[in-house]
Design a protein around this nucleic acid. Structure first.
Lengths: 240, 240
DNA sequence: AATAACATACCGACTGGTCTGTATTGATGA
DNA sequence: TCATCAATACAGACCAGTCGGTATGTTATT
């Protein structure tokens, strides 16, 4: 293995380890030293690859956003009609409510939002995709209205409602894991939402067997997410 | 003013100051020393009234829960029918989305939940009322179904949906304050929810002018909330 | 005089980040 | 081919500052 490959490997190792640690103990409660120890590397390695702890955090955020982004793009291309698109998005989110490793992303999302409250850099990085996804949803609904599949409601409002539903489900799933079968609630809610929105009373069968959020798929990064916000505090190092 | 009264005053001063500071900068980012300085008292005073920083945090949580609790009880007694009850609850939450001081509680709630992720004590204190409110909602819906006001849906599921909506709205209102008129979205969402749930197509007029969450009202503490979880770590002090 | 209600100085633990050193690698030039 | 040089990729000791909490002292009320 060449030196460069090894470097990438340790960087990924750092990212993976930190992801788990953040999900388990939270961002603030996880020290850099702790991450390094779990990853089996030194602090020097850490600060060689990331200018600061927050930079790793943002890299983690962007890595996750990249896969979510491409999944949504895939849905946009695959789904024949708006009804199906929204149903597929529901199915996409579903695994996040499964216990164990699968729900790590949703816990992380919560951690991102927590930090975003106090750290402007994190807020910027988190709010931009959030707004993008909201307009994405709004567009789908608008299209549905235009094509006659949906009733002539306020598309923006409908998107906000659906977004609220998902966000609330996510948060509750994280906080009160055993309080309900959140995956089931998500499915039922979205079905209900579509039923009330659709002109045709026909219900779309649950396409749960379709997409899933696979970390394994490399998938090309979407343009607006590629830049990793590489920035140094003082030194001009870290050009890589 | 007697010594006891002055003591209560400084305690409240501590609580109020901490509330603002936590809402502004977050729990972790707010130091005990900072709170004391802003409150104009010494660290000695702080640890005279609260055994630990977390204890003050929990006291803050319970103070807020107490007023919310009594407000909900008032609704339960005042509202003639389930439709009206839910509409009043919507109106009750509405001020939380107003800019400025009024939204401090919602920011704090977010802070509570953030801490609840890592601190079992906070989690316990936060999850209990959450579940209680959910069953409260479920009961209202169940009653509505029994009285024929609501369709015969799954009451538990409907409550979870409404809860998700509210929680999601809250979180988005905190994170993306200027992203939408969240108060309006809340009103519209609940109206829509009720419209889809009600048997009678008649819409309930928005009773916004009615209740509001007034910190000023002392209001008797509800039984399950009274105990302030006073507990010491080592010393047996702080009996007050 | 006993206790409540503070004030102040101080401590130890911990944390993000830096600094200096070193081994390996790849390019270059003689 | 091989010595050399520079840059990369780390290692690990170290530091400056912060924070929650404590110990002890002081004042005023009951």
């Amino acid at each position: 293995m060449s030196t460069q490959q090894r470097a990438i490997a340790t960087r990924d190792q750092l990212l993976d380890t930190a992801e788990g640690a953040f999900a388990r103990n939270g961002y603030d409660a996880t020290g850099v030293a702790e991450i390094c120890q779990s990853a089996g590397v030194s602090k020097g390695a850490f600060y060689h690859h990331f200018p600061t702890k927050q930079a790793l955090f943002l890299a983690l955020l962007n890595r996750w956003l990249a896969v979510l982004d491409s999944s949504l793009q895939a849905i946009r291309l695959n789904a024949g009609n708006p009804n199906e698109a929204i149903a597929q998005m529901s199915a996409l989110l579903r695994p996040l409510f499964k216990d164990g490793q699968a729900m790590t992303p949703s816990v992380l999302v919560f951690e991102f939002w927590s930090q975003a409250r106090h750290e402007p850099a994190v807020w910027q990085a988190a709010i931009e995709p959030y707004r993008r996804y909201r307009t994405f949803l709004t567009d789908i609904i608008r299209n549905g209205i235009a094509s006659g599949a949906f009733k002539a409601v306020d598309a923006s409002l409908a998107a906000q409602m659906l977004m609220s539903l998902v966000v609330g489900l996510l948060l509750q799933g994280v906080m009160d894991r055993d309080g309900a079968d959140w995956g089931e609630v998500l499915g039922a809610s979205v079905r209900q939402f579509l039923a009330n929105l659709s002109t045709a009373p026909a219900s779309v069968p649950d396409p749960s067997a379709g997409l899933t959020l696979a970390r394994t798929t490399p998938l090309a990064l979407a343009p607006p997410l590629v830049d990793e916000l590489k920035k140094k505090k003082k030194k001009a190092k870290h050009k890589h």
